[in-house]
């Protein structure tokens, strides 16, 4: 498999599967959580570089543990959501910089972690991304009803028997897995965008939640393909190009849909 095919494969996997988890994250008003978790993943990957061990287990472990800590801070220590997220965010970046500075290849390691490197992705990277993201998407779909009830109304969900605390923690842990799996492709700084933006764009137009899941995946995957194609032609960094395209798509949904419904409404009233 050529490096270009692997880049397309990585972009499709991350773009197509991240919004499955992202759809619920967006509806829980946690759009920035991926950013905080991304910075924790940065610390995990820097720690792995320092210890010269395989990055995935350590990064995944630290990020999921951080996701559990985040929920604990909010639910049991009664910290405000923005304060809890800030604690996680800055802990990740500070610990990451300290550990990375102790390694010999500080600058190049930091750049790869921050912005990803889709064009240098290996076949084993691709397999790991597929396993972690596929697993996260499957768990999300298996728990679809539980997650849907929770995002619809937490109190009503609790009355219906949903264990809201553990469900919220599981969702945050799934977001952490997506972030870790996507870092190799688009980097710590941008992975959260692919978790949230295609899902948010889909939710502007889809009429049902199930349709929004499908459309979010379609937006993410097609943005990934178009982003890699454009990046190769323009010699732009692929991760950033994919995210820029996702943002253009989101803005198009924000601007185009109200105009479309106004025109449709005018036509309707003219009939």
């Amino acid at each position: 498999m050529s490096y270009i095919a692997r880049a397309y494969g990585g972009a499709i996997l991350v773009g197509g599967l991240a919004p499955v988890v992202g759809a619920f994250i967006v509806q829980r008003r946690q759009a920035l959580i991926g950013d905080g978790l991304g910075h924790l993943a940065f610390a995990g990957a820097a720690g792995a570089a320092l210890l010269s061990v395989s990055p995935l287990p350590l990064t995944l472990g630290i990020t999921v543990a951080g996701a559990v800590l985040l929920e604990w801070l909010q639910r049991f220590a009664r910290a405000r959501a923005d304060v809890a997220l800030s604690v996680i965010y800055y802990a990740g970046i500070a610990a990451g910089v300290v550990m990375l500075s102790a390694t010999q290849s500080y600058a190049s390691s930091a750049l790869t972690l921050l912005f990803g490197s889709l064009l240098t992705i290996t076949a084993s990277d691709l397999l790991l991304i597929a396993a972690v993201l596929g697993g996260a998407a499957l768990v999300t779909l298996a728990g679809y009803r539980t997650f849907f009830l929770m995002v619809l109304d937490e109190k009503a969900a609790a009355v219906a028997g949903v264990p809201v605390g553990p469900t919220a923690t599981l969702l945050t842990a799934l977001a952490a897995s997506v972030v870790v799996a996507g870092i190799r492709a688009v980097g710590v700084l941008l992975i959260a965008a692919l978790l949230v933006i295609p899902a948010a764009a889909a939710q502007r137009v889809a009429r049902s939640f199930k349709a929004s899941l499908l459309l979010g995946s379609a937006f993410g995957a097609s943005g990934g393909i178009a982003g890699v194609w454009l990046a190769i032609r323009l010699d732009w960094p692929p991760g950033a190009t994919i995210v820029l395209l996702a943002i253009v798509l989101y803005l198009a949904m924000v601007v185009a849909i109200p105009i479309w419904s106004r025109v449709g409404g005018r036509r309707h009233s003219a009939q």
């Binding site: 509806q27 298996a142 009803r145 849907f148 889909a202 939710q203 502007r204 049902s208 929004s212």
Partner: peptide
């Protein structure tokens, strides 16, 4: 306004306490 769920989806969700997750 941006919650993408139909009336049918929301009302059906009320039945899930009886049906379980799967």
């Amino acid at each position: 306004v941006d919650f993408p769920a139909t009336v049918a989806e929301v009302v059906s969700a009320g039945r899930w306490a009886r049906l379980g997750p799967l």
